[in-house]
């Protein structure tokens, strides 16, 4: 089998707070994301899923275990090698209003990610903005994050991540800040990007239905441990672990509306 894009091996991480017992946020977790694969990491708040995401991105050092990105062990890299290596994975965060520097215009935000040597930065930036549906991209270059809508901000964040030509996108609750009616826009964009560029996704989410329909494979996390993993459709329709069953049952079911053919 080919080397996966990302391999997390026996990752553990605990947090100490003065006056409190240490919290084992992640406890001996292993997880792989194959090339072009979409994996959903599902869990409730405090399950350790976001901590694991930060460890995968190399933003947080695990107490033990290894993060292997394209065959390279992150911990064994020098600071400059790490900077180079981690470009292959890009994050998308929950709230683009905090994941974009409020003092920078779209042009500056894009320029931070674009290689200067390769032609005009404006042109490349505009093309990427067009690609994520902020069109015409040129009109958005001078805008600041607070001057565009929440959905558009998330697109801008995606465009910037794409500028790095990532092989893996780690998305931490990318839809929690978005209105229900525009979630589909963002999900469809992520699907298109995957088709065009063959990127892999690690999507960290608490939303069972999004995980079920977006991911190939799902890992369910509870109190720092992955309790169940497998094909998304299988795990989230007929779960075998009691916690997954509880989680799936707790989601209020919404029956499909009749005769809703006015939307494609």
């Amino acid at each position: 089998m080919a080397e996966p894009i990302l391999r997390l091996e026996n990752i553990s991480k605990s947090f100490r707070r003065p006056g409190h017992a240490p919290v084992q946020a992640v406890d001996n977790v292993s997880l792989e994301v194959g090339r072009g694969e979409t994996v959903a990491l599902v869990g409730e708040s405090g399950s350790g899923k976001s901590t694991l995401g930060r460890i995968a991105l190399g933003l947080l050092a695990p107490d033990s275990g290894r993060v292997v990105l394209e065959g390279k062990v992150l911990r064994e890299l020098s600071a400059s090698e790490l900077r180079q290596a981690r470009i292959a994975m890009q994050p998308i965060f929950q709230d683009a209003s905090s994941s974009l520097n409020p003092r920078r215009s779209a042009r500056e935000l894009m320029a931070q990610a674009l290689p200067e040597a390769k032609g005009s930065v404006d042109e490349q930036a505009a093309r990427l903005l067009d690609r994520v549906g902020l069109s015409p991209g040129r009109d958005y270059l001078a805008r600041f994050p607070h001057e565009i809508s929440g959905g558009q901000r998330q697109r801008l964040a995606i465009a910037r991540a794409l500028a790095m030509n990532p092989k893996l996108i780690i998305a931490d609750e990318p839809l929690s800040g978005a209105d229900v009616s525009i979630r589909g826009q963002v999900l469809n964009l992520l699907l298109d990007i995957k088709e065009e560029r063959g990127v892999a996704y690690l999507m960290i989410t608490h939303d069972i239905s999004i995980a079920r329909h977006f991911a190939d494979r799902v890992a369910v996390m509870q109190r720092g441990v992955i309790v169940e993993t497998g094909p998304a459709a299988q795990v989230l329709t007929s779960p075998s672990h009691p916690y997954t069953r509880e989680l799936v049952a707790a989601v209020p079911v919404l029956a499909a509306p009749e005769a809703a053919s006015i939307y494609r």
């Binding site: 589909g184 826009q185 939307y263 494609r264």
Partner: peptide, 22 residues
């Protein structure tokens, strides 16, 4: 809104959505 909330994909594998912004 209901279709979007289902987060299900249609026959073409697309997620339902309402175009435009709030």
């Amino acid at each position: 809104l209901l279709k979007a909330a289902q987060a299900a994909r249609n026959s073409e594998g697309r997620f339902a959505t309402i175009s435009g912004d709030p």
